[in-house]
Each structure stands twice: as C-alpha cells, then as structure tokens.
Write a protein that binds this DNA or RNA. Structure first.
Lengths: 210, 210
DNA sequence: AACCCACTACCTACTGGTAGGTAGGCACCT
DNA sequence: AGGTGCCTACCTACCAGTAGGTAGTGGGTT
C-alpha cells in the first residue's frame, strides 16, 4: 500500500532503463504469462543482457510484483475518479462502465495480466488480488443495493451482477486474440471497442432500468 | 519395487494409465498453465516417471493436443444436444445457457483450460480454437437475429451480445479462485453455482425479453 | 576518487526428450 | 511342460538446452 510513491522523473524525453524494463515486462507477461516469459526475453526487448536487468530488479518475482503493484494503483486511481463523479442511478453505472472501457482500451496488456492473475489465483503475487479489490466490490454492491431498493434500478442480486459485469467487460479485452477469430476482425481497434462498449452498455441498461 | 506400489488391485472399474495421465494433465494444465506445468509434475501425480509418461504420449505438445481435442469434442457434443432441443424464443436461450452452466459445473478445469487458450490465442495448439467454434457462434448469432427481427427478443447486436454472454458465464468458473475472495465463499459449490446461474439468467431475461 | 551501469563468464537447478535395460504377460511352438 | 520370441509398461541414467541468479570487470560520469 505504502509503495505507491514512485520516483517518476520521466521528463518526457528519455524513460529510464528501469521504466523501459517495466514496459517491456508488462508486454511480455501479458502476452505469454509469468512462466512463459524468461528474463532473457525481457532484457532482449529492452536491448540489454539479463544480468543488467537483474541489476535493476533483484529477481523475476520482484520485477513482477512491482509491475503489478504499479498497474493496480493506476487502475484503482482511475476507478476512484470515476466513482467520485457526481451522478446517481443508471447514469453512474454507465459512467463507471465507460471509465472501465476507457481504462482497458488505454492498456489492454493490463487486462490480460489481471486475467492471468485471476486465473492463477494470485500465485505469483505476495498480495491477494481479491482482498485489494474487495472494498471497491463491496462499495459497488452497496451502491447498487440502495439504488435497487429505491426503485431506481431493477431488483437483482448486486454481487452476482457485479461478477457478471466484470466478466463481460474484461473478457472482450483479455480474450481479444480469440474474439478476433470469432468476429473476423481486429477486436481492439478504437471503433470496434466503442461498438462493443455501446452494445454492453445498452445491454446493461435494458436489464437494469425498470 | 517397494518404492511404488503400482499393483493397484483391479477392483472393478480401473482407468488405464493413459487415461490417468490425461486426467492429471487436465488438472495440472488448468491449474498452472502449459508452461507452468512440467511433465514431471504430471508423471508424479500419476505415480510414474516422466519417461514412462512419454511412452504413452510422444511429447508434451502431443499430450496437450490430444487432451484439448478430447475436451473440445465433449464440449461441442453437449452444446449440440442443447441446441437441438425443441424450443424457441427466450426458452431456447435459457436452455442453452443452462446447458452451458451444467457443462462448466461438471468440468471446471475445462473452463480454465479454455480461458488460458483464449488468452494465449491458441499458441500451444495446432488448431485455431476460434475457427472451430465459429460455426456455432454464427448459428447462434443468426438465431438471435431472426428472433429479434420477429420481435420475440429485444433488438440488440447479436454478435456483441454473444461475446458478452460468453464472457459473463465463462468468467465465474475460470476466475473462481478470484471470485472466492470477492464473495468470501467457495464459488464452485453446487448451491453457489445455481445461485449465480439463476442470477445470470434473470439478468439476461430482463435484458432480452421485450 | 567513487559511483553507476552494463558487460562477460559462470553457477546450479530443472526442462523436454532419449538410450538402454528389465519384468511380466501372452501366443505359438516342439 | 518348457522354451522362444514379441509385446507392453515401466525403470535408471543421461543428454543438450535453458531457466534464474551471482561474481567480477571495466568504461563513463561526476
């Protein structure tokens, strides 16, 4: 939690080798998973040798942990911004959904990484992913519950609904290679993403507004 | 010889070693992925040495391929049965959804395997997963389209809807370890599965029936 | 001088896969 | 009955390659 502070010099022009390593690591881990990625792969992507990489990060696990923490804090920050926006009823649901889509669109690699971690049950992480997201999950469920009780949204089980929504949105990005084959088109082009987002939101509105 | 008691009194039904290997391989690959699983892990789970495993399967890739093919044909068979049932409109949608839930409940490992393959874009497979499921996908989309046009179901983009449904249903099973942490309960108990299935189906019915 | 940072060279552990051998079962012979 | 071949199913020992990680070197900057 307290590790959110980052040096972050990054005066635009040159990213530090450290940051370049993190960037490349995200790509590799998202693409081929933790076990499927070797430190040599990452180092080669940056243009250095493995021992040089290990000069910046003590171990593969350390690198992965730091990278994941960075992603998670970025995610939480953006979600919190969306959650804090002044809206209510369905409008707020739609705002959060759109924020989620925007977040995923900006960095689809994050999504695949998250999905892999969810699949593995956080085996490569010291932290428990679910427990970190739990407060957010509970808050969202509570919001939905009150809105449903007030008759603003249709009565459904909030927790199951959230899991369904989580799966519906995440999947389009995490399984993009597979979706490509289904729709015979690039899933992650901006226009296709918007089309899918609109479709999902229409779907949810149909289900949730009385 | 005293190391491993392999005699295994053939009390009635005994699965062949080959089948035992396949069973264990599904478990391991679902749990830790292709790269995360070594042939030693699988062999140890069966109670034999790696070379003995390779006596039954030419290579790791062969084993994985055969296992996946078996799963896929099982899946397709069961889906086809559900699709062939005599029903129409929303009833048919619900039938297929329930068939999907039943299939996943019977073999949650299959789901995680599929998800991993979707994530990797079928990198470990000779076949293209999407192209195999494509006919099913197209048929489902066409069914939805005609039902929508007839006014039996609400007008939504069938293809995006299918992808959303696919993600919503698959996720509950594939990300079960993560869901456990969110709901603070075992996601894959029969009662929780039924509860979630009912929730998803209610949700879809709300969205789809005019 | 000291400090970075990247390098080469090397380590151990483990990977998928191979070589060669052994124990036991079954069919077919005298 | 007792060989004989041949087969399946397993074993130990080993291979080359690669994994993550360490030690020590040496040039550049300050």
């Amino acid at each position: 939690m307290a590790l959110l502070d980052r040096t972050e010099p990054d005066e635009g022009e040159t990213r530090s080798t450290r940051d370049l390593i993190l960037d490349e690591a995200v790509r590799c881990f998202a693409e081929r998973g933790y076990e499927g990625t070797s430190l040599n792969d990452i180092a080669a992507g940056v243009g250095i040798r493995r021992p040089s990489l290990l000069h910046h990060f003590a171990s593969k696990e350390t690198l992965y942990g730091e990278l994941f923490e960075r992603i998670l804090s970025d995610w939480l920050e953006r979600v919190n911004i969306a959650v804090a926006l002044d809206a209510s009823g369905w409008d707020k649901v739609e705002l959060v959904l759109r924020a989620g889509f925007a977040l995923f669109e900006d960095n689809p690699d994050y999504v695949r990484l998250m999905r892999r971690e969810a699949l593995d049950g956080g085996a490569h992480l010291g932290i428990d992913l679910a427990s970190v997201l739990r407060p957010l999950f509970d808050a969202a469920a509570e919001y939905l519950r009150t809105q449903m009780e007030a008759g603003v949204l249709r009565q459904l089980d909030p927790r199951h609904l959230l899991i369904t929504g989580y799966g519906a949105i995440l999947t389009y990005f995490s399984d993009a290679p597979f979706v490509n084959g289904l729709i015979d088109d690039e899933a992650l082009t901006p226009s296709n993403i918007r089309e899918h987002a609109d479709s999902v939101i229409t779907f949810f509105r149909s289900a949730l507004t009385p």
